[in-house]
């Protein structure tokens, strides 16, 4: 890849954002009628659809846990989601990895003990890929789980941050993510208690820079939480009106 200027001297990134700015975030709950809970999450050009089925009878006997619910996450990438049209096999390692990252993140926050011998299915579809898939998947799952009425101790919000030319930058898009010189990390936090449930980094980052990168990402998570909370409140108010007392 040719060397591209990711951060202009004026401090603007290739999509015109400042270093500490999120992309435009749009989300919506209850988008599917068949699913028990669903959500659509859009961050810039990354678009994810999440559907929750359950808690329901486990599909496999071996998935029955006597003390809590079994959480199953399936992640699919639409063939039309990237520039190059490509069908991905179900066993793709990158895809399985994202699914297991989402599952591990939520196992710590879902109060699964209230649904013993049940299964909660989370189906994630990536409709458009512009970087930050893991964070978009986690945020979409949070919204869909809340919509399904599954108890969680609190929100989980995820955000990515990286480093371009000595400057920490928030919420990387695909071009920034795929540049060799940009280290990036994804963090999932519970904004109220400040606990970290996921921290993922696949490149080298100088240890002295880790802290401010993490802080910036956490700040992004808090911004996302505010957006999500207002959507959840609006949807709950809407449901109260629809279903009545």
């Amino acid at each position: 890849m040719s060397r591209q200027e990711l951060l202009s001297p004026e401090g603007l990134r290739i999509d015109g954002r400042r270093a500490n700015e999120l992309r435009r975030t749009v989300c919506k709950q209850s988008v599917l009628t068949q699913a028990d809970g669903s959500a659509y999450y859009e961050q810039g050009n990354t678009k994810v659809l999440a559907a929750i089925y359950g808690p329901r009878e486990p599909r496999l006997r071996s998935n029955t846990l006597n003390d809590r619910a079994f959480v199953n996450v399936e992640f699919k990438v639409a063939p039309f989601s990237t520039n190059e049209r490509r069908k991905r096999s179900k066993g793709d390692r990158r895809i399985l990895e994202i699914a297991s990252a989402v599952r591990q993140t939520f196992e710590s926050v879902i109060v699964a003990t209230v649904y013993p011998r049940s299964q909660i299915d989370v189906f994630l579809h990536l409709l458009q890929d512009d970087g930050g898939n893991v964070q978009a998947c986690i945020n979409a799952t949070t919204l869909a789980l809340i919509d399904a009425g599954i108890p969680m101790t609190e929100y989980i919000c995820a955000c990515s941050a990286g480093y371009i030319d000595e400057t920490p930058v928030l919420d990387l898009n695909h071009t920034e993510e795929s540049s060799f010189e940009t280290p990036d990390l994804t963090i999932a936090v519970m904004p109220r208690s400040g606990k970290v449930t996921l921290l993922q980094m696949e490149s080298r980052l100088e240890i002295t820079r880790l802290e401010d990168t993490m802080l910036l990402a956490t700040e992004g998570c808090k911004q996302i939480q505010r957006i999500m909370d207002s959507v959840v409140r609006e949807n709950t108010r809407d449901l109260v009106e629809k279903y009545g007392q």
């Binding site: 969680m152 609190e154 929100y155 109220r192 959840v232 409140r233």
Partner: peptide, 8 residues
């Protein structure tokens, strides 16, 4: 008056 809450 109904009190609406969100997780956490």
């Amino acid at each position: 008056e109904t009190q609406l809450v969100t997780p956490g």
